[in-house]
Computed example of a mutant assay.
Amino acid sequence: MEIERKFLIHTLPEDLDSYPSSTLEQAYLCTEPVVRVRRSDDTYTLTYKSKGLMSREEYNLPLTRDSYEHLKAKADGNVIRKRRYRIPLESGLTIELDLFDTPFEDLRLAEVEFSSEEEALAFVPPPWFGEDVTWSSKYHNSTLSRKHV
């Protein structure tokens, strides 16, 4: 089960380059339910996600590079490319800050994953977080993949 909250980001942390980051590329084979292939640096994954906003079932299966490339070619819509920074919080949680490449280069999203819905609902975001968009599917990467650009 994936339990996460999502926020728009308008101001980036000053020391962003001091945090670990990865280059991600993901393509969607289906958006209802979500079936996605992802490359994170040199790791390849097939992911299934059920419907939902804050809480959804999620299953991940490893792929080879060849399998990833074969499936990516079958994607519907946009292939999403972004840099993901992992920023630790004092609470032990981690912010995953995504800075998107073209055509979504103006979009900055932060996600925080939780172990329970109660923990997610009690979360107080850092002051540099913008609008809470957890309850809007508009900011799901699967939705962006279908957006005409």
Rank of each mutant, 00 (worst) to 15 (best):
D42E: 13
E118A: 13
E25D: 01
E119W: 06
D106R: 10
S136Y: 12
L99A: 08
D66P: 03
A110S: 09
R5D: 06
Y85K: 10
F7S: 02
L63V: 04
L107K: 06
M1I: 04
E2W: 00
L61V: 13
E131S: 15
L24H: 06
M1L: 06
P88F: 10
P125G: 08
R56Y: 10
I80G: 01
Y85R: 09
K6T: 05
P88H: 10
L97E: 03
F114C: 10
V149F: 15
P126F: 14
I87H: 12
I87R: 10
P127T: 13
K138G: 07
W135D: 15
T43S: 13
D101T: 05
D98L: 05
L61S: 13
V112Y: 06
L63H: 02
R5P: 05
T94H: 12
A75W: 00
R108V: 05
R146G: 11
S116P: 02
E32L: 09
L63N: 04
Y59R: 08
R108Y: 02
I9A: 03
S22V: 14
K49F: 01
P126C: 14
E57Y: 09
D132C: 15
T47F: 09
D42Y: 11
R84V: 09
D76N: 12
A75N: 02
E113P: 07
S40G: 10
D76Q: 12
P13W: 06
D17T: 13
Y68W: 10
P88R: 10
D106K: 12
L71P: 01
L121G: 09
V34L: 04
E25Q: 11
R36H: 01
R65H: 13
L46K: 01
I9W: 01
A110W: 05
L46P: 00
F7P: 05
E105C: 00
T102Q: 07
G77F: 03
L107F: 06
S22T: 15
P126L: 14
F129S: 13
L8M: 08
I80L: 04
D132P: 11
W135L: 15
P62R: 09
E25P: 04
G130T: 14
S137F: 02
S137N: 14
K82Y: 06
V112K: 06
S137R: 09
G52F: 05
P20L: 11
F100T: 01
T143D: 08
K6A: 03
D41S: 12
S116C: 07
L109A: 07
L109H: 00
R5E: 07
